[in-house]
Amino acid sequence: MRIGKQDNAHTAIATSDAETITVRGLDLCNELIGQIGFTDYFWLLVIGKRPSDAQRQILDACLVAIAEHGLVPSVQAARMTLAAGPEAWQGAVAAGLLGMGSVVAGSSESAGRYLAKVISEADASGTAIEGAAISSLKRLKASREKVAGLGHPQHSGGDPRANRLLELSDSLGISGRHVETLRTLAKHSPVIMERPLPINVSGAIPAVMLDAGWPLEALKAVPLLARTAGLAAHLYEESLRSIGFIMSHHADLAITYDGPQASRAADQNKGR
């Protein structure tokens, strides 16, 4: 498709006329409002059909697992933005979401793509998941790259959120090749990478969601939606008792300037 030209100008998500609003083929007012929970609606909006009970439960669990995790960088950015512009809730939410990249929160997408890559390599070579996982880990070790979905700076003994999500996935009958691949990587990584690398929540979420049928291309939507809820809580609290400037002040105290010193006018005038 050429830039600026759309040959297929269509959407299958929603439409409306003078009497009705249709979302994914359902009447918004008569079939959805008051008839469907938001987790189900999120699944319906993205995928186009309602989730099964198991799919709803695992998506709900993933959203709950990462909606809140304290004063992480995205929260600090949001709270300091609101402190500077109390009227700009939308700007503060955006500030918090814009920093969700490959290191914080958005790392679920990276882990999901890595799991899919290992599975694809196993299928292409006709080998078992274990062989593909070991080969992949050895390549990462040689190139000094991190293993997406493994390791945590705080939960070094094991991320309790990840453990709970995987347990729930097992009990719901969701766990499949992605969960298997993640567990295989976690099994062999301590020896190959030569350090403890427990499964983290950013690895567990894509594993269980992909096995549940969620599309790889929409993985980032899960942490984005979850953290928006957490940001709303922090911004409401920020509006009642602000700590944005306190955080800013402590950051200023914690950072030491090591650049060149400006010349002083008094020094320049000495001897005149």
Results as ranks from 00 to 15, higher is better:
A133M: 01
R56G: 03
D267A: 13
Q261C: 08
G131M: 03
D267N: 09
I255W: 12
I134T: 09
T39S: 11
L168S: 03
G173I: 05
A95D: 07
E31C: 05
M80N: 04
E167L: 13
V201M: 06
R177T: 07
A133F: 01
A162H: 07
Q6M: 14
I192K: 07
H188F: 14
A61V: 08
N163L: 12
E87S: 13
E109R: 04
G4R: 09
A232P: 06
L44P: 02
L45H: 09
L32R: 01
G158S: 08
L28G: 08
M247R: 12
R139L: 15
N30P: 00
E121H: 11
F245Y: 13
S108T: 12
I246D: 12
G176E: 07
I246V: 11
L32A: 02
T127P: 00
A266G: 01
R164E: 10
G259H: 08
K187W: 04
I58C: 10
E217F: 00
Q154M: 12
R50W: 03
I129P: 01
S102G: 10
L240Y: 04
R264S: 15
K270M: 13
Q261T: 14
N163D: 11
R113G: 03
S263D: 11
S52H: 05
R272A: 14
S242V: 05
A148T: 01
R113C: 06
V103Y: 04
V64R: 00
A9N: 14
A207S: 10
S248I: 02
V103S: 08
S120P: 00
I3K: 14
R241A: 13
A212M: 11
D123S: 09
A133K: 02
G34M: 05
E194Q: 14
C62L: 03
L71Y: 11
V103C: 02
C62K: 01
I134S: 05
A83I: 04
L59M: 15
G158V: 05
S263R: 14
L166W: 00
L253T: 12
I174C: 04
L253G: 06
D53T: 13
V93A: 10
F42W: 09
A105P: 00
I174T: 07
L150R: 00
G126N: 10
F42K: 02
A207G: 01
L45N: 08
V72A: 14
G158W: 03
L172D: 10
V93P: 04
T184G: 01
I119G: 00
L97C: 11
S102C: 12
L231Q: 09
G271Q: 09
M80F: 04
V93G: 05
G157H: 10
K146T: 15
S263F: 07
A207Y: 00
G173A: 08
P206H: 06
M247G: 06
T81R: 09
E121Q: 15
Q154V: 13
G101Q: 04
V93S: 06
V118N: 01
L168Q: 14
T256W: 01
G106S: 06
P190D: 10
S136H: 13
